[in-house]
């Protein structure tokens, strides 16, 4: 474990917590893409499938973190699609999730480390995570704005994988550890946040709200 990966995981946890708090406190999921949250839940379930296959006692923080990610993302989807369904902005959350899932699944079958069920599921979850934020960014571009709390969520979510890139550089240099698929997908994922990062740093940090030219 290194500092970049630690802060990456903490940033990821923070993102999940910020979103849950936003929805729970405001009792509304306006401005939140339900599809992105569904895609994240699929990512966690397919990536941590080993938890279900051979359940081992929660002997380390990693298992606990995996369970937290899965349960928090499923609970977030429950809040969006059931409890606060009336506030879900379905009209603007209109990016076709199939256009993300099918290519990720296809690519996972073509480019993977080993043609093995668990490995392909892991690869699929990595590819899907790289593009899972697109419905959320699409929704913001459609509505033309993002609540400040949603911007903080996106910043934390984007920072998590950016910090993981630093972690991969660190591990390559000190442990000569390379996981090419995760690295390439992680770089693509972080690039997708670039324009949002620019808006966040130039606006939200100064207390302004993100309003996109509609």
């Amino acid at each position: 474990m290194n500092i970049f990966r630690l802060f990456g995981d903490l940033s990821h946890l923070a993102a999940i917590a910020i979103l849950l708090l936003k929805i729970w406190k405001t009792r509304s999921c306006a401005g939140v893409s339900g599809k992105t949250q569904l895609l994240f839940a699929v990512c966690f379930i397919t990536r941590y499938i080993d938890l279900f296959l051979h359940f081992v006692s929660l002997y380390n923080t990693e298992k606990v973190m995996k369970l937290i990610y899965i349960s928090a993302s499923v609970f977030t989807c429950y809040l969006i699609f059931f409890k606060f369904k009336a506030t879900y902005d379905g009209n603007h959350d209109s990016m076709r999730a199939e256009f993300l899932i099918v290519p990720a699944a296809g690519l996972a079958c073509l480019i993977n480390t080993k043609f093995d069920a668990i490995e392909i599921l892991w690869t699929f979850s990595i590819y899907l995570e790289a593009v899972a934020i697109l419905p959320q960014l699409f929704l913001i571009s459609k509505t033309g704005e993002a609540e400040t709390i949603t911007s903080h969520y996106l910043f934390a979510q984007g920072s998590y994988r950016a910090l993981y890139i630093l972690n991969w550089i660190y591990r390559y240099h000190y442990e000569s550890h390379v996981d090419t698929i995760a690295i390439v997908a992680g770089v693509v994922q972080t690039i997708l946040y670039c324009d949002f990062f620019y808006l966040y740093i130039t606006k939200v940090v100064k207390g302004q709200k993100i309003v996109l030219p509609a």
């Binding site: 990693e62 973190m65 080993k114 093995d116 490995e119 996981d179 995760a182």
Partner: peptide, 10 residues
């Protein structure tokens, strides 16, 4: 068979 890479990250 070659070992399946252990993806030891979350």
């Amino acid at each position: 068979p070659e070992p399946i890479p252990d993806h030891d990250e979350l």
